[in-house]
Every structure is written in C-alpha cells, then in structure tokens.
Computed example of a mutant assay.
Amino acid sequence: MKFDDYKKQPLFWNGIIMTVITVAILPLLFLDTRTLLGANVWIKPLKFTLSVGLYSMTTVWVMVKFLKGWKFNGKIQMALTITSFIEIVLITLQASRGEMSHFNITTVWNQIIFSIMGVSISIFWVLHLWMGYNIFKKESISRSIKESLVWGMVIAGFGMVIGFFMTSPRPDQLEAMKQGIFVASGSHQFGSGDPGAGILFFGWSTKLGDMRVPHFFGMHVMQVFVFLAAYLMNKQDSILNQTLVRILGVLFLLINLFMVIQTLNGESIFHFNPFFSSVYGILSLLIVFCLIKIISIPKQFRNEVTI
C-alpha cells in the first residue's frame, strides 16, 4: 500500500494532529505546575491525544486496506476525525482553565462542555460499530483476518460503552442536584475510602475500583487485534487459525468483563484478590498459548516458479 493512499485519509491527518498536540503539551507539564485531583492539569489531555492518535493510525490502516471501496469510507473517517477532535479541544480547553472536563457540572458552561463531549463520543461509538459491521459482512477478507478485526472492534466498542458507567450520576449526586447543588455527575471511582497512590502517569487507583482501567483496556485491545490481522496476512488461512483468533477474542472480552465486575465491586484491578487475580492469570496464560500457536503456523506458501 502506497504512502500516498494514506495522505488522502482524514484519520491519517487526525493522527498527525494528535502527535503535534502531544508534542506541544509536553513542555507544559514542566512549565505549568497547577494540579487537578492530585495530577498535573496537562496529564489528561496528553493521555487523550495519545489514545486518539493511536486509534486514528491503526483505524486508517484498516480503512485503507479492507474498506477502500466502501462508499462511506471518507465520510466515516471525517466524522470520526471531527468528533474525536471536538473531544480533544474541549479537554484541552478545560485543562487550560484548570477545570475538570468530565463529570463537571459546576457551571452552565461546564455543563455544556460535558454534554457536547457526551454527544460527540456517542456519535463516535456508533460510527465505530458501523465500520466494524461493514468489515464483518465483507466477504473478500479472509476468515482469520476478519475474525481478528471484528473482535478488536467489538471489544473496543465495549470498552467505549464502559465509559457510560462513569457518567451516570451517583445517588448522593442526584440528591444534591435535587437540592440545587451542582458539582459532579458521575465518577471514574467506585467504592469509598482512600483510593491509594495512583499508577504513575495514568493515575489509576490501586485500592478502589477505577473504571478507567477496563475502559482503557477494552479500547486499546483493538490495536492488538489490528496488529494480529497484519501478521496473519502472511499466514495460511485455515479453520484452526480462525478458531484460535476467536478464542483470543473471547478471552480478551472475558478479561474486560471481569475487570468491570471487580471495579463495580469497588475494588481496584491492581489490588490482589484471590478470585479475580486467578482468573486474570489463567486467561492470560491461555492468551499466550493461543498466540504461540498462531505464530507456529507456517507462512503462506506461494506456487510461483522462478525462471
């Protein structure tokens, strides 16, 4: 695939823009010492630009390689670019103001920003699933590659939906709203008490349930499956290959589901729990086994004669 093919794609330029914004934010981490919830105000936009940039660059490869002839290709890419860019602009704007971008309903302006972000990411999610559906029904894609792409997009879609757990207002917040007190609507934290020291850079709680962990995991498992699809392009397509990829999809989805359950129970993924830790360990071993089996499958044979 020629580089010129990518230069025509909106998502490619979205990835480039995210890279530029990331580079621009980095000096602010040292120049601006303001903190919000214990972290530098610029950490959050930095995390989001990195995430959106990674999504854009992997997704544009999928769109060019497998959906190039789809009549909605360019429009979907443009819509994904616009909605994600809106998200980044608003998060960065709030960071510059020293305000929370998510869950913040302290003022009318903050409520509007939070609402726009919610609408924007909802549109993004629908378009993401539509793209996955069109890959699923495209018959020209080999079975194992299609299996990998679809599982990646489905789990990423599930990871995005997890975000709605965080935006739902809690009972105490609803009670405060009834009394005319508007502070927050939702939270990434589940459980009560000391959240403990946050994981470096990410800020994820090590004690209480933090829904950002399964949210992040689900969204970026997609990249694992996209890279796997690229690897499978040089492998023989077979029922065994397809089955192994399907098992991988189920295993990754199960890990994500158990992460959500543990978080809803108010417990951090990083807190040792005999049951959950054992489940993660067993599922991870099975994932490694499936990946080794896929790697051990011989490369695709070519019936070409050199003269």
Rank of each mutant, 00 (worst) to 15 (best):
K7V: 05
K8I: 06
P10H: 10
L11S: 04
W13K: 10
T19V: 13
T19Y: 04
I21W: 10
I21M: 10
P27T: 11
T33P: 00
T33A: 12
T35E: 15
L37Y: 09
A39Q: 14
V41H: 03
V41Q: 03
K47S: 01
F48A: 07
G53T: 09
G69V: 02
G74H: 03
K75F: 13
I76T: 13
Q77W: 01
S84V: 04
I86Q: 01
L90H: 02
I105Y: 03
I105P: 01
T106N: 10
T106R: 14
I121T: 10
I123P: 11
F124V: 05
F124D: 09
W125E: 08
L127K: 04
F136Y: 15
K137H: 08
R143I: 05
K146I: 03
L149W: 03
V150Y: 02
M153P: 03
V154S: 03
A156R: 03
G157F: 12
V161G: 10
F165E: 13
F165I: 14
T167D: 02
T167R: 03
T167I: 13
R170Q: 14
P171V: 10
L174T: 05
I181M: 00
S185G: 08
S187L: 08
G193I: 00
D194I: 01
D194A: 03
F201G: 01
F201V: 15
G203F: 05
D210R: 09
D210S: 11
V213Y: 09
H215W: 06
F216V: 01
F217G: 02
G218I: 03
G218R: 06
Q223M: 13
L228N: 05
A229L: 06
L232Y: 07
Q242R: 15
R246H: 13
I247Q: 11
V250A: 14
L253T: 15
F258L: 13
F258A: 12
Q262H: 12
E267I: 15
P274K: 11
F276G: 01
S277E: 01
S277T: 15
S278T: 15
L283E: 12
S284N: 11
S284V: 04
L286Y: 07
I287C: 13
K293M: 13
I295C: 00
I295Y: 15
R302D: 12
E304F: 12
